[in-house]
Computed example of a mutant assay.
Amino acid sequence: MQNQPGFVSARPQIVLQLHTTHSPSFLGLHKNVGLWNVSNSGKGVIIGLLDTGINPKHPSFNDHGMPPPPAKWKGKCEFNYKACNNKLIGARNLVKRAKSPLDGDGHGTHTSSTAAGNFVDGANFLGNANGTAVGIAPRAHVAMYRVYGVDVISISVGVTAIPPYEEIMAIGAYRAIEKGIFVSCSAGNSGPSSATIENGSPWILTVGASSTDRKISAVAVLGNGAEYEGESAFQSANMSRKLLPLIDSGYCEALVSMDVRGKIVLCGIMGSLSVFKKGQEVKKAGGTAMILRNEKEQGHTTFVTVHVLPATHVSYIDGLKIRNYTESTSTPVATISFKGTRIGDKHAPVVAYLTSMRQ
């Protein structure tokens, strides 16, 4: 990792106490001590976001404990009902075909709540990952689309790397920097191959994601006693502990020619179908459950997907071991054990901070 361009530092992460109910704690941010306390949690700062809009009724934009907007704020709220408050202080629509700043995609609501969402108690994901959801600057004000008069611009969109003098995002960010507005952009969702970072101009703070030490655990249990932990948002309380026939179906795209009824189906993550649609195909063909395995390119990266049937997503190495098991016996069997939310990992995650910004 140290040899990669843009690397600054990394450190092993310790196991903490109890996306976003856990991220602040994982990063060492605590309400009454440390950096959060010293920074007043972003109090007085206005964060402007260029995104798909915002849902003002989302609980992350409640204004409990929020002061009024700073006197310098001159922005507008274009919602045709009383939706803005001391948290969401501005919303402008810059899309000609849209009628309001209301989020029709969900991305803008997601990114703005991650940046500055207020405290929301009792948040969970299908009963998992229970906790208090909060943004990184919970006392900062939010303005969607409108960037005039803000202190920080946060942008989670981008294009494949092109020269800065041809990239609109880079040019706009440079103009903002000239006016003293801090610009933070996402590094994109590509990788891990080289030259996949987006928004990499040297005047932008380019932020790359890492994993955390929390999983919504689903364990593949094989007939030979081996267990391989994966992830799944589908946490089935009705999944039998009885070992069921296990079949390797390749990429789960030609199940009409295979008898998968009542079986657990091993599926490769590659192919033309999305992860969600692979599960649909397995269920439609009569499969009981699915084990989704990575290819080498995905490595250890797994996703907490809302599958349509009991499933788990395992790493490339574990997927190889499961596949080898199916080939080593004439009657491979397996089941899936759902463990729910689990914090702490024997493989301590590493938090890497990637920045292209020059001080």
Rank of each mutant, 00 (worst) to 15 (best):
T196H: 11
A176N: 00
S217R: 15
S194I: 13
G172K: 04
E231T: 15
S190Q: 14
M169W: 07
N199R: 07
Y165I: 00
G172A: 04
L222D: 02
G223Q: 05
R214P: 13
I155N: 12
G191E: 00
C185G: 08
P163Y: 00
I204M: 04
R214Y: 15
L243E: 08
E178H: 14
E227S: 06
M239I: 06
E198A: 11
G158W: 04
L205H: 11
V219C: 03
Y228C: 02
A226K: 10
K242V: 15
A176L: 01
V152F: 04
I153F: 08
M239W: 01
M169Y: 08
G208T: 04
G188D: 05
I171V: 08
T212I: 02
S210I: 07
T160C: 12
P202K: 09
K179T: 05
L222S: 00
R175W: 04
S156V: 07
S184G: 14
A170H: 03
V207C: 08
C185S: 10
I181C: 00
S236M: 02
S210L: 04
D213L: 03
S156W: 07
R241V: 14
T206A: 01
E166C: 09
G208Q: 06
I162Y: 01
I181D: 05
K179L: 05
V183K: 13
V207R: 00
S193A: 12
A195M: 13
I181S: 05
G225A: 02
E178L: 15
I153A: 10
N189H: 06
I155M: 12
C185N: 09
S190R: 13
A220Y: 01
R214G: 11
W203N: 02
V183T: 10
L243D: 07
E166Y: 12
A170Y: 05
W203T: 05
S193N: 12
G225N: 03
E198C: 10
K179C: 03
G208P: 06
P163K: 03
A170T: 06
I177Q: 11
I153D: 01
A195I: 13
A233K: 12
V152Y: 03
G230V: 08
S210P: 00
E166G: 09
G223L: 05
E167N: 09
P192K: 08
C185P: 05
V219K: 09
Y174N: 13
G230R: 07
A187T: 06
Y174D: 13
A195C: 12
A220G: 04
A237W: 08
V157D: 06
E167Y: 03
T212R: 00
G223W: 02
G180M: 02
F182E: 12
N199L: 07
W203V: 02
